[in-house]
Design a protein around this nucleic acid. Sequence first.
DNA 1: ACTATCGGAGAGTAGCACTATCTACATGAC
DNA 2: GTCATGTAGATAGTGCTACTCTCCGATAGT
Lengths: 215, 215
Amino acid sequence: MRISELSKRANVPLTAVKYYQREGLLPEGMRSAPNQVDYGDAHVQRVRLIRALLQTGGLSIAATKAVVAALDVPGAPLAETFEVAQHAMSTPRTTESTPSEESRDRIVAITRSHGWHISVENPGISAAARALDGLLAIRFDPPDSYLGAYADAAATVAAADLRALDDRGTLDEVAELMVVGTVLGDPLFAGLRRLAHEDATHTRPPTSDTNRAQS
Amino acid sequence: MRISELSKRANVPLTAVKYYQREGLLPEGMRSAPNQVDYGDAHVQRVRLIRALLQTGGLSIAATKAVVAALDVPGAPLAETFEVAQHAMSTPRTTESTPSEESRDRIVAITRSHGWHISVENPGISAAARALDGLLAIRFDPPDSYLGAYADAAATVAAADLRALDDRGTLDEVAELMVVGTVLGDPLFAGLRRLAHEDATHTRPPTSDTNRAQS
DNA sequence: ACTATCGGAGAGTAGCACTATCTACATGAC
DNA sequence: GTCATGTAGATAGTGCTACTCTCCGATAGT
C-alpha cells in the first residue's frame, strides 16, 4: 500500500504520517521505484502505536522515538527495553520541580513497609513524591492507610502486568507489551479510577451534599 | 506580604506569579495603596496548589482556572465541584481521538461485572477505552483477568479517596481535597506503579532475560 | 495523454506557559 | 529630603512542540 492508504487505515492525517517519517519514528517502506514506496501491515500497526504513545500516553515525539527505536533493536535484553520505556515516561512536556526530601522519604517508607525491593534511583519515587507534595500543599497529610491503599492497588496491577507478559508468544512481543503496557497502563487505570469514583459517590456519598459554608 | 515574598514562599518565579494573577488563577490581595497589594498565607497556598495542578497534575492553565474557580464558589454543592475536577482532567493539552465502540463496550462490561453504577457520559469510559485501543494496536487483547485487576485496583483507591474525605473538617476542605485528590491521585498511583514494577521484576522475572530473537 | 496521486523537503502555524521590558509610583534606610 | 530598591500593571516577545502547508518533479492508472 502507499502512504495515503496507510494514513486511512491508521486513521491518521497523511501529513502527520509524513511528519513521523521525517522524524524517524516510522521505518522506511519497500522502495518499488525511485519515488514510490510500499508499506505493509506492520507500518499501520506502527502508526497506531505511535499515536497511542503520543496522545493517550502523553509522550513527546522524542520520547516516542526512543521507545519505538528500542523495540526495533533485535537483540536487546528485556531489562534495557523496559528501562527505555520507564525513562520515556519520566521525560514530560512540562518541566517538573524537584520534590521535597520528606515526601521522598515518605514514599520510600511506604514501599519498605510493603516489602518492596526498589532502587533509590527509580524515578517513580520522585513522581509519587511530587504528587504527595501537592496534597500537602492543601494541608492534607495523607495517613498511612491512604498511601497504603494506593500501594496495594499498584501492586495489584503490577502483578497483572507481569502475568500478561507470560501469555505473550515471542520475546519481541513480550518487549512490545512491556513498553506499551508501561506507558498505557497509567491512562487505563486513570479512566477506571474515575468510573470507580462515580460508583463510590453514588453508593456512599462522602458527606452531606448540602451547601457549603461561606469562605 | 508583597509579591516578591509570595513568590519566594511558594518557590515560584515572580513573573509566573504575575502571570497567574493576570490569568485570573489567583484572587486579588488586599490593596493597601493605589499600587501596593498585600497577600496572605492563603495566597501562598493557592500558588502552590496552582503549581501542583499545572505541573504534577498536567492540567492546562484554562483547566486549572476552572478548578480553582470552583473552589472559590462558596455555596456550590460538592457534586458540582467534583464534576469540574473531573471535567478539567479530560481537557488535555493534546487533542485526543475518539475511541472505538468495541473498547467502550468492553470497559462498560468490566464495570458492570464489578457491579459499578456509572453513567454512560462519564469521560473515564473514553479515557480507558483509548488506552485499551492502544493495547489492541499491538495485538494485545487483554483478558478479563487483566482488566479486572485494574478495576479492582481502581476500586481500592477510590474507596481510600472517599475515606480520606471523611477525615476532613469543613466542607470547603472536603471540596478542596476532592478536587486535588482527583487530579493528583493519578500521578501518585503512576509513581507507585513504577516502583511496584521494579519490585515485581526483581522477585519474579517475567521471562528469561537473555537476548531476543531477530526481528 | 492526461489527471490524480505520490514522495520528499522546507517553511510556516497555532497554542501554550511563561518571560522581558517598560512606566509610574511607593517604600525605607540614611 | 533623597535615592536606591522594589512594586503594580500592562504589552510584547520567547521557546518549544506537534503538526500543517506548499511546492516540486516523478509516477500510476485509465
